[in-house]
Design a protein around this nucleic acid. Structure first.
Lengths: 194, 194
DNA sequence: TGATTTTATTGACATACATCAATTTTCAGC
DNA sequence: GCTGAAAATTGATGTATGTCAATAAAATCA
């Protein structure tokens, strides 16, 4: 088993492929080694790819009309990342994607995915299930925004991503939670007192 | 073509089925005629089904620990509705679903869907694409909550659902936008002055 | 290691929105 | 059309979080 095949079985660990299928997939994946602070997608770009994070950390963010950044998602090992709205609807990106630390990712194009879905139907099921999970986590996030205070959201954030504070800046977390860095700082202080 | 088949071609209008396939689907769908104010799903219920809204209006909402309701979604003609997080993960509901006005809906179970996906692969594609759209609208909603004021969110709400104000109560809209009815009332007043 | 830049913290004050209580308006059922 | 209940509005006031400015701490790099 060569390196690429072991990656394939790592990415799609739920599925076992024939040698032929593995080769098919292998030809569609492109490995990218990225330094910290690299932007791989900008607003208005065409969104042709999604990315599998092998290691490192990336984030997607949105810049609103007043110039403020809002983090939609962090992606670490074994997560998929893209501007999915644009990716699915074949419209232009509204999001930016950047590496927060050095990262190795695998790129796959929409076209390749559609081809693969025809050749290997289990892949469609695989991505449908990934989508279902991502959908569920977005739902949870919407409910959290509606029902919880900034402090409560911060607490569930650090429970959900226990090690992420070593990697990401406070202003990334604040922009994910929908608060300012000052407010986050005050919440952290208050928590450290109790 | 009997009544049921015309419903099937209405629900799955993008797909053309063989007679045999139509019969397969027909046997999995159950029609429900519901009065206004009927709850079809409660928190802690097992979520075995999703529902296609033929007409009328429903909403899914969440009750937080302080007893407040938060509307996640409205569903009108040609929308699918369920507590998807629970539906996908086969866990218990956290959401409630109720009719806001008289409605006709079609129920399909998770088990039936899985069976149908094997028999009719285009159905898996159909639902994957529905899921992608729903995912995109959730993403939009998260970004709106992060980036927009209550007034801006209200304006985009009435643009997205232009006729819904005739059907739903202000407190439904407020609970969808994450504000109180009083604040919504003040926003409406302010808008009527300009 | 020290210099410089980036990030985080703190304080004073502003503001959007919530809360509570009192009306007013709308709606449903008779 | 009348009556009571539900929904919406309004006013007074409270609070969580934002904004702006200053400083402190941490990270980067020559």
């Amino acid at each position: 088993m060569n390196i690429e095949n072991s990656i394939i079985s790592e990415i799609f660990k739920e599925i076992s492929f024939s040698k032929k299928e593995e080769n098919l997939i292998e030809n569609k994946l492109k490995k990218l080694d990225l330094k910290k602070g690299v932007t791989i997608l900008k607003a208005d770009d065409k969104v042709l790819n999604q990315y599998y994070v092998y290691n490192g950390c990336l984030r997607t963010y949105f810049i609103d009309k007043s110039g403020k950044e809002h983090t939609l998602q962090f992606a670490i090992n074994d997560w998929w990342i893209s501007d999915y709205t644009a990716f699915f609807t074949t419209t232009k990106a509204v999001m930016y994607i950047e590496t927060i630390e050095e990262a190795t990712i695998y790129q796959i194009s929409k076209k390749s995915m559609e081809d693969l879905f025809i050749e290997i139907p289990q892949l469609e099921t695989f991505f449908r299930k990934k989508m279902e999970k991502a959908f569920a986590s977005f739902q949870k996030r919407i409910l959290a925004n509606l029902a919880q205070s900034a402090k409560e959201r911060y607490v569930s954030f650090i429970n959900t991503y226990p090690n992420i504070e070593q990697t990401v800046k406070n202003y990334h977390i604040a922009s994910y939670l929908g608060i300012t860095t000052e407010t986050l700082s005050r919440i952290r202080k208050e928590m450290s007192l109790n």
